[in-house]
Write a protein that binds this DNA or RNA. Sequence first.
DNA 1: TAGATTGTTAATCGATTAACAATC
DNA 2: TAGATTGTTAATCGATTAACAATC
Lengths: 230, 230
Amino acid sequence: MTDERQISKAVISRLPRYYRYLGELMEEGIERISSNELSARMKVTASQIRQDLNNFGGFGQQGYGYNVKYLYTEIARILGIDRQHNLIIIGAGNLGQAIANYTNFEKRGFIIKGMFDTNPRLIGLVVRGVEIRGIDDLEQFIIDNEVQIAALTIPKSKAPEIAERLVKAGIKAIWNFAHTDLNVPDDVVVENVHLSESLMRLSYRVCSMQDERERKAKEKAEQTGTNETC
Amino acid sequence: MTDERQISKAVISRLPRYYRYLGELMEEGIERISSNELSARMKVTASQIRQDLNNFGGFGQQGYGYNVKYLYTEIARILGIDRQHNLIIIGAGNLGQAIANYTNFEKRGFIIKGMFDTNPRLIGLVVRGVEIRGIDDLEQFIIDNEVQIAALTIPKSKAPEIAERLVKAGIKAIWNFAHTDLNVPDDVVVENVHLSESLMRLSYRVCSMQDERERKAKEKAEQTGTNETC
DNA sequence: TAGATTGTTAATCGATTAACAATC
DNA sequence: TAGATTGTTAATCGATTAACAATC
């Protein structure tokens, strides 16, 4: 019913951004939009928008464009955020608590069922109505609460062992914030958020921007004859 | 000296991962590695590794492979993490504090000079030796401390205004955790970390994995004649 | 109906993989 | 020297953009 052929990863990774922009359009009270207008807002080509959406079927109408609310709902359905996903957070440090405190996740169907930590000082604390538990309960808790997704906000050193326990307990997906790659069976989804890698990419871009700035300054200096290179 | 031609974004985004694996190899005491061995560990093709690295020059040696330590150092240089980057964190909530507490960033040359928040309860607190300040000081602080990078861990609603102030104060890059796109001049780098989008991609993958599982189960049921479709 | 805009095919562009000569 | 493995060119694959007929 849902799947015809494999959708490319590039397309999938753009869908949440479309979803965000459509949400903003709804807030502005805009009811319909053409691929051209949307392309101007999002700074992508109209062609790409139409191509992307047509992977999932024709959501638009010739001569009219796209109905914002309808498209918004359809993308939610495609992404599976119209359903409920039960989630736990392993690691109740700042990062784990940051995720627990982000209320918008619940709006998208991600229900935080529990938090886990090994630190005795944290166990028993309640964050946004969710109790922090010791890690011994883990397997039973996953089964009892039909947990699909585990956010892993623990140090790299502990990640492989916990990942294995999660897999054995039947988890469907790991949202991995640990600075390491996890080895799991093919049918377990791992979505990595490697913040240190993100920061390194930023670093690269800052440096190459700096290089470019210097190159241009030098060029200008040469043109105005400020140095004796030629 | 450093730049010849534009390096593709795909290549850049893979460099931090190479860097991580090379670091692990060093910890294991491995001194040299061939593209083939590395490809097995990293689950990418050897061809891609060689192609990627050759964008920046020949770091290997025929018949030998790559010297781990040398390559590690070179990638650090390419990424610009051999230099010092002064950083501030705007928004001292859980996410901001999580970043402040992650010690490895300092190892890579990212020095956290200050944290800022509007919440009076947080102002004056000290996180890992860094004081949380009121946001009024922002511009002067950036100039006085030669701050290049600002991590933006504040709600979406406040992000555009702060981004504008940062740009005016001469910031070079914004590490953006706010759930919105920022409008900044071309020479200011924005690296987005949109956690909600990451979670939606995870959701998609969980659902399509589920679909596949069901499809296969159905196929099997048909083969064994458990239903009457044919 | 005429104008607008999609859905979709074709053309282009870029990234990945394969192959192999160069060379340590 | 022979074997190993890179650096690099060529072939393939996939993703993006352009174009336009279909159609609301």
